[in-house]
Nucleic acid binder design. Structure first.
Lengths: 348, 348
DNA sequence: CTGAAAGCGCTTACAG
DNA sequence: CTGAAAGCGCTTACAG
């Protein structure tokens, strides 16, 4: 048995080295690498032994060229929230850590008119196995269609099911926001204001639906001017808070559709000399670092974002993974209401 | 002139198509792609015209295999701060957006005993052109040595020059912290406390040096118990704040080595019924979202993190870039002191 | 269950 | 300044 080492003396062992040492064809080695099932136990074992012996690791670049795809998953996002992106990445990496897959991250700009083209070019060049899409761009059906057209697998993450179960991982924003609002109501609040998320955001719509559900359920009337418009940013929350608190009959509690805006509401209250939560209860959404750092610390909603990363990865490339933590048919993961210090009984 | 289209009917044009149409060898096309200088103007022009005509884009996987390297840069980080990572990414992407390079992001766990091995494996498999390393792991010389040994280019980002100018991008933490402390002093503070960053972090050391410089300069004595130890996390800041404020002669101002800890200090003050900044001035570092959202909003230091991303990318793979924004020999970028609402004249 | 051949789309020496 | 040959390390049909 001759060991045909690759030309470049000391370099890493290749599939040829393994084939030669195991006395099989490289195709057979390839079958072992790719987990083909039509292999005799003896051959399989022999090849695996040689692989371990040699410390052979398949060259991803060569596989990519021959396979026509990179052994990588891409994460597409438009900076919804830095911590969210990072936590999601952790989940994805957790899922793929025992595989030989890589993660590539692609921030995009949803305000750019060429976003779709840019993504198409990216997919064409990088040829990932599939893409994971974070909100808000996960809500864009044209992006999902692009993936479908290009034959790239995709999974969309969102506040609710954005696609069929095989192509989405969802949170239950409506449900948990309703729960948060019920907490406000059971604490004694009757005049509850809303700071909406931006128009056209599915998450904003879902959260408002949850708000509505809780109000309806309790038979509470919500005046039109209790519903204010925000854009998920701090300043819009502050402006909304100022408007709400300037009302003749201001709300005693405000649900802001994310933490940044909730922080703005808190500022608006403090500016007026109010004390939170004594004079105004506030609830946010995201459980961002801000929610924790604010004074008083903010009652908010936490997405199971890392688990969503795991689940999304498993949905996308489960066939490349040895182990799965979630069952195939799960696509919704429950959020948690994080009770902190920003809710109190309203003054009478 | 015959157009030899690649076998698979409608697929993308390859280097062969370009070569055939332009009437040159594929090697010549390759030269054009890679910007070789030994090419006659006529040939160059002709080939470029065909490239545009055909919409030819070189296949990165094929190049990677032949070249022995992926046309990508990797970003290694251990979650210093989510916003920092994302802003840095933006900078890197900005720098490479007109090239055909990709960005791969690799979060690592500095507490894992296998971190170095994991990174080595990653580098060996993915074979990026080079790696960009964010603090705190950028401070580890063993990581830099690993890159050197493996023949992978690297650039380290840090609070001060961590390597020779070709291999690092630095902020001037000491200088700007001194400036922040001088502001405290000129506002009238004489009793200034410090919340240090964790042991073994270069950034923590640099910031303390800046603190010391300003104190020395002003001839201010800093009692030992004015120097407290933190770990860059909120809780440690709160604990430090509590300790400082419980002193018989507590400081009237506190510099915390990052915003999270500064938020903790603010909480410690509010718990005691103090008003910030009336009763206590606070300065942080990072200009994180928290600094903006806190009440009062926090005076802090902002790293030019996006520019650092651009500069780091240019240092790493400037030879692959058409345009550069920074001169080759720049390696330090100035931070900015962001004055907000958390400093006031001390009570007497 | 296994293999020999051809090919993925580029680039590296080596010539001339 | 330009090219023909060989090769990067895998995988895909196609056989048997």
């Amino acid at each position: 048995m001759t060991i045909t080492n690759s030309k470049r003396g000391s370099s890493k062992p290749t599939i040829n080295d393994v084939a030669a040492l195991a006395g099989v064809s490289k195709k057979t080695v390839s079958r072992v690498i790719n987990g083909s099932d039509s292999l005799s136990g003896a051959t399989l074992e022999r090849v695996q032994k040689v692989i371990v012996e040699l410390g052979y690791v398949p060259n991803p670049q060569a596989r990519a060229l021959a396979f026509g795809r990179n052994f990588a998953v891409a994460l597409l996002h438009d900076n919804p929230n830095a911590q969210t992106v990072l936590n999601f990445e952790r989940g994805v990496l957790d899922a793929i850590k025992d595989s030989d897959l890589a993660l590539m991250v692609r921030p995009v700009d949803r305000h750019s008119p060429s976003m779709l083209e840019d993504i198409a070019k990216f997919l064409q060049q990088q040829r990932p196995l599939g893409v994971l899409i974070l909100p808000p761009i996960s809500e864009r059906d044209d992006l999902a269609n692009l993936c479908r057209t290009m034959g790239v697998r995709y999974v969309r993450v969102g506040s609710t099911a954005l696609d069929d179960p095989a192509h989405c991982v969802a949170s239950d924003d409506g449900v948990v926001v309703a729960q948060a609002c019920r907490l406000l109501i059971s604490t004694g609040h009757r005049r509850i204001g809303l700071v909406r998320g931006p128009h056209g955001f599915r998450s904003a719509a879902e959260r408002e639906l949850g708000f509505d559900a809780a109000m309806d359920e309790a038979g509470l009337d919500v005046p039109d001017d209790y519903r204010t418009q925000g854009d998920y940013r701090f300043e819009s929350g502050r402006a909304a808070g100022r408007a709400l608190l300037a009302l003749d009959s201001p709300p005693t509690a405000i649900f802001a559709s994310n933490d940044e805006m909730a922080a703005g509401v808190v500022h608006a209250a403090l500016e007026r000399g109010l004390v939170v939560p004594r004079d105004l209860s506030v609830v946010g959404f995201d459980d961002s670092p801000t929610a924790h750092h604010l004074w008083p610390s903010l009652t908010t909603v936490r997405w199971p974002i890392k688990d969503m990363g795991v689940l999304a990865a498993e949905k996308l490339i489960g066939d490349f993974l040895d182990t799965r933590r979630f069952s195939q048919d799960v696509h919704e993961l429950p959020s948690a209401l994080i009770e902190r210090a920003s809710i109190a009984v309203p003054k009478t």
